[in-house]
């Protein structure tokens, strides 16, 4: 073990391999953000460069355009299977927040949560990987590495399985599925340290002056364009982001508007099946 990043990596690789061994129908939720890009990199570490299951993207059609360009290029370059799901009914009917016909939470609920559920049931997945971290937000701080969802996709956070000694919940009743969280123990700082060390490609708008970012603005967290704002500050690469992060005392998801709605709105979304 050379350093802390090696420990984080080894633990995540163990979890990814464990899920691959235990679940027949497996996919990885790839939001195209920095975390899921690290997660995809760890898959290649686990399987000697191979990516033996599909990447799944829930496309709301409101994503920052650079994300979609990055997604399609990387899928081509690395040659993995990509499954994209969109809730066209709601999108075409314009029952969305950007069209002024839904609250932010209703919009997230339809375009992300419902689309994700339809993606999972259409493909009959036993388990899907999701790149959430404990340090992002309070309900995620209480998650398990292997977290069951019932037949209605709900998260019963009041009755989670015990998880100890790297023995995970890999036995599950028919109709339920497992969310696997290989990055749960990483922090935002760790993610950028690892991106810097491994030279992992990320969407350029994380850096100031890229895409529509002015020279002194960048995205700290990526999501749908209407609900995600940029942060002030110049950072042209991962190491400059690290310098800023170490001085910052502002929560990472403070730029994601849906998190700032009613106190338990995000908890409700997650309980109903959101990432």
């Amino acid at each position: 073990m050379r350093d802390h990043l090696d420990e984080l990596e080894a633990q995540s690789v163990y979890i990814i391999r464990e899920a691959f061994k235990k679940f027949e129908k497996l996919g990885m939720l790839w939001s195209i953000g920095k975390d899921s890009s690290v997660m995809l990199w760890l898959v290649r570490k686990a399987f000697m460069g191979h990516i033996p299951f599909p990447m799944l993207h829930v496309d709301t059609k409101y994503k920052i355009p650079e994300m979609i360009e990055f997604r399609d290029n990387l899928a081509k370059e690395w040659g993995f299977e990509l499954i994209v799901e969109t809730n066209w009914d709601v999108y075409n009917a314009k029952k969305t927040f950007p069209e002024g016909n839904a609250t932010r939470i209703e919009c997230c609920s339809a375009l992300k949560k419902d689309a994700l559920q339809s993606l999972i049931s259409k493909n009959d997945f036993d388990a899907v990987f999701a790149g959430i971290r404990r340090d992002e937000e309070g309900t995620r701080a209480k998650e398990r590495y292997f977290s069951p969802r019932n037949t209605k996709f709900q998260w019963d956070f009041k009755d989670q399985p015990p998880e100890l000694w790297d023995q995970y919940k890999t036995d599950f009743a028919p109709g339920t599925h497992i969310r696997v969280h290989p990055l749960l123990h990483w922090t935002e700082l760790n993610i950028w340290e690892y991106i810097e060390r491994e030279k992992i490609p990320v969407v350029p708008v994380y850096f100031s002056g890229q895409g529509k970012c002015p020279p002194d603005e960048r995205y700290r967290s990526l999501g749908c364009e209407p609900c995600t704002s940029r942060v002030k500050g110049e950072a042209k690469n991962a190491s400059e982001i690290l310098v800023q992060l170490k001085q910052s005392n502002i929560a990472e998801r403070s730029t994601r508007a849906q998190d700032q709605e009613a106190e338990d709105a995000f908890e409700q979304l997650r309980a109903q099946g959101y990432m």
Partner: peptide, 15 residues
């Protein structure tokens, strides 16, 4: 973090 934890002022799950 859970609403029910705040409402009842009791920790349900580890964080």
């Amino acid at each position: 973090a859970f609403k029910s934890e705040k409402d009842q002022n009791i920790t349900i799950d580890t964080a």
